[in-house]
C-alpha cells in the first residue's frame, strides 16, 4: 500500500522547488505528476507540442533523484532485439570454437551418443545465461543496481507491436526472456514516455500510464525559464522577447515557436549584444524562432507591429 503523506501539498511544492533548483521550471501540474508517479508506481506519458521540455523533464528528474538516465529513442522498425535484449551470438560462437577441444576432453570417457548427450545435459544451459545476454535499454534499466530513470522518447514514432512489448515492463516492471525466465526490476525505475501525438497510442498503454500534457508556458513561466537558463540576460530584453514570442504563438503559423526556440533566440540575441528588440534585428534572427519559410514570409510584415506591442507589454 502506498504511504500517505501528511501533507501532500507541501510535498508537491517541495518537488517543484527542487526542480527549480535543478534549473527546470515547472508548474504545479507537472510536480503533481511526478509525485503521483512515485506514489502510485506509474509511468508518465508526457504529451505536448515539440520543444516544451518533455525530454528535459526526464533529465531533470534523473538529476534530482541522483539516478541514472537510460534513454531509448524510438523509431519506426524498432524491435525487441534493439529495445529489450539480444543474445551475444558472436560470443557464443567464439566460445563454442574455443571450447571445442575442451568438450572433446570432457566427453572422452563417455561411450556412445547417449552417454555423451547425458553428460552434455549436466553442463546446463551455459550458452543461454546472463553472461551471453546483451541488455538493451529497457533491460538495462531493470537490471541496474542504481535507481534509474527510463526515458522512452517519442514513443509515437514506434510501431504498434512495440507498444505491446512495453506493456509488461510498464505495469509490472519486469521482462520475460523465454530462455531464462522473468527478470524483475531491482529498483523500480521511474519511467517517462514522451509523445508528439503523431499517432494515437493504444488504450492498453494509455491505461497503464499517467497522462501529462505540457502546453506552451504562459509569459510568467517563460520568463522564469529564460531566467533560469540564461541568467546573464538583461531583464528588459528578457521581458520583451518573451512578450514577442507569446504574441507570435497567437498567430496563425505552421509551427509555433516552443520554449527551446525561445531559449535559442535569447542566446542569439545575447551574442549579438542586443539590449532591446528592434525590428531589423528581429527580422534577421527570426529564423531561430520560425522553422518554415512560409511562416517567416507571412510574419515579415507583422514584425514592426509585434515588436512595438511586445515593448509595450514588457514595460
Amino acid at each position: 500500500m502506498t504511504l500517505i503523506d501528511k501533507d501532500p501539498t507541501a510535498a508537491i511544492a517541495d518537488i517543484q522547488k527542487r526542480f527549480e533548483g535543478a534549473g527546470y521550471i515547472c508548474d504545479r501540474h507537472i510536480a503533481t505528476s511526478i509525485y503521483l508517479s512515485r506514489k502510485l508506481d506509474k509511468p508518465i506519458l508526457v504529451e505536448g507540442p515539440p520543444g516544451v521540455g518533455k525530454t528535459e523533464l526526464a533529465k531533470a528528474t534523473a538529476e534530482l533523484m541522483g539516478a541514472d538516465l537510460v534513454r531509448l529513442q524510438c523509431y519506426e522498425g524498432l524491435d525487441e532485439s534493439k529495445a529489450l535484449y539480444e543474445w551475444k551470438y558472436g560470443k557464443q560462437l567464439l566460445y563454442t570454437q574455443i571450447l571445442k577441444e575442451k568438450l572433446g576432453d570432457l566427453l572422452e570417457d563417455a561411450q556412445g551418443i547417449d552417454a555423451s548427450m547425458e553428460k552434455l545435459h549436466t553442463f546446463g544451459d551455459q550458452f543461454f545465461s546472463h553472461n551471453f545476454l546483451e541488455a538493451r535499454p529497457l533491460l538495462q534499466a531493470l537490471m541496474s543496481d542504481n535507481q534509474t530513470v527510463l526515458l522512452i522518447d517519442e514513443i509515437d514514432k514506434s510501431d504498434h507491436e512495440f507498444e505491446a512489448y512495453l506493456l509488461e515492463i510498464l505495469s509490472d516492471y519486469q521482462i520475460t526472456v523465454p530462455e531464462i525466465g522473468t527478470i524483475k526490476a531491482i529498483h523500480k525505475p521511474v519511467v517517462f514516455l514522451t509523445s508528439n501525438n503523431s499517432r494515437e497510442m493504444g488504450d492498453a498503454l494509455k491505461r497503464r500510464c499517467l497522462h501529462l500534457y505540457i502546453p506552451f508556458p504562459d509569459a510568467d513561466r517563460e520568463r522564469q525559464i529564460i531566467q533560469a537558463r540564461i541568467p546573464e540576460i538583461d531583464e528588459n530584453l528578457r521581458n520583451q522577447l518573451v512578450a514577442f514570442v507569446q504574441q507570435l504563438r497567437t498567430q496563425d503559423l505552421k509551427k509555433l515557436p516552443a520554449v527551446s526556440e525561445t531559449i535559442d533566440w535569447a542566446r542569439t540575441l545575447m551574442l549579438l549584444h542586443a539590449e532591446s528588440l528592434d525590428t531589423d534585428m528581429v527580422r534577421n534572427t527570426l529564423n531561430m524562432l520560425l522553422k518554415f519559410e512560409d511562416d517567416i514570409d507571412n510574419m515579415d510584415s507583422e514584425i514592426p507591429k509585434l515588436v512595438t506591442a511586445a515593448k509595450k507589454e514588457a514595460r
Binding site: 503523506d5 503533481t32 503521483l36 502510485l40 497522462h211 501529462l212
Partner: peptide, 25 residues
C-alpha cells in the same frame, strides 16, 4: 488511491491529479 493520497481539501490539486489519472487525451 489518488484521492486517498491527496484528500479532498485542495480542489485544484485534486483536479490536476485526477485529470492525469483518468483522462488520457
Amino acid at each position: 488511491r489518488t484521492i486517498e493520497l491527496l484528500g479532498y481539501e485542495d480542489r485544484g490539486l485534486l483536479k490536476s491529479a485526477l485529470g492525469q489519472v483518468m483522462a488520457k487525451t
